[in-house]
Structures are given as structure tokens and as C-alpha cells.
Simulated assay, not measured.
Amino acid sequence: MQPQIIQLPEKKLVGIARTMSFLDYQVSELWQSFMPRRHEIQNVKSNQLFNIQVNPPGYSFDPETAFEKWAALEVDAYTTIPDGMQKLIIPAGRYAVFTYRGDGSNASDFFRSIFTQWLPEAQLQWENRPQFEVLSEKYQKNSPDSEELIFIPVL
């Protein structure tokens, strides 16, 4: 688990957001509402899908704490935002970028090891900015050959 540390430029996104917690995790429903409508978004930079988590101030990683989850696409500019969608700006900042491979069955363990092992060992701190996954052409839902990039904001 050796991430790349990058300085991420600001990103403009358009998508659908839903408030949820890990105890009431509705990510499948979120993506089911977004995917049929993704072609309505204008000025799309690429086909990469963004699975974003925006945490409230003082977020404590408690499974009951609500956060905002987004299904989105990156855009060059905001022109027309489709009805029922919103815009989101991910501010520029420092990120640790991990590659996750697998069918998702051990994703929670992978994330737990980032926050409980890797961050302390790297002597870095998590910063409460949007954290997200980028799902590109290598992403294949529920496939052991699937690959995605995980972006964790760090100080």
C-alpha cells in the first residue's frame, strides 16, 4: 500500500448527491439514479466517474454520522446544470492516491488500513476535504479484476 502523494488542482463536478451514513449506506441507489442521466451533463472532461464523500465539519468517522455522497462527472465549465443535479467544486489540495484492486468485498478493510495504519506510519494527517474514488475504464463492478483510484486528502 504505497500511494502517490499529489497536489490536486481544483476540480469542477456535476452530479447527484444524497445524505447517508455508513449504517444507512445508499450508494447503490445513488448510482442507479445517476447513471441513466449522466449523458445530460454538458462540458464533460472524460468518462471517468467520481464517487465522492463530503463530510460535515468535525466529522468523526462514527458509522451513524451523516455525510454527503456524490455520483458525478468532471466538467470543464458550468453552463447548464440538469434538473435534479448539482455542482460541486473539489478545492485544490494535497492528496494521497491509492490504487484499489478487487471486487469491493474488502474495501472497508482497505479504507480502515489507510486511516489506522498508513496515515500514522506516514506521519500525515487526514484533512476534512472531499475524499473520492475515480472509476475509469479499469473499473468493473463486482469483478476481481476491477481497479479504481482512491483520493484521500492529507496534510
Rank of each mutant, 00 (worst) to 15 (best):
F67G: 04
I52T: 03
E10Q: 15
R94M: 10
V44Y: 09
K45E: 04
S108R: 14
P63I: 10
E68C: 12
F22R: 11
S21L: 12
H39F: 00
Y78K: 09
R94F: 00
Q42W: 07
I52C: 01
P82W: 10
P57I: 09
T79R: 13
I90R: 01
A107Y: 15
N51A: 15
V75N: 00
A17R: 14
Q48K: 13
D62R: 12
G93I: 08
I16W: 02
I16H: 02
Q32V: 00
G102W: 11
G15V: 04
A96F: 09
D83Y: 13
L13R: 00
G104M: 12
H39R: 10
F50E: 01
L73E: 02
W31G: 04
V97H: 14
Y78L: 08
M35H: 02
D76M: 09
F67I: 07
S60M: 09
N55G: 05
S105G: 07
P57R: 06
F98Y: 11
Q86L: 08
Q48C: 10
K12S: 02
P36M: 00
G15L: 03
D24E: 14
T79L: 11
E74W: 05
P56K: 12
W70G: 02
Q42H: 12
V97Q: 13
I89L: 08
P63C: 08
A77Y: 14
K87R: 13
M85F: 03
R101Y: 08
A77K: 15
Q86I: 08
Q32P: 04
N106M: 14
E74H: 05
S46C: 08
V27G: 01
D83W: 10
Q26K: 14
R101M: 12
Q48F: 11
D24G: 06
D24S: 13
D83L: 13
A92D: 10
S105E: 06
G93T: 10
I16L: 13
T65N: 08
K87T: 01
I90V: 15
I16P: 02
S105T: 15
T65P: 00
E10W: 09
F98D: 04
A66D: 12
F61S: 01
T80L: 13
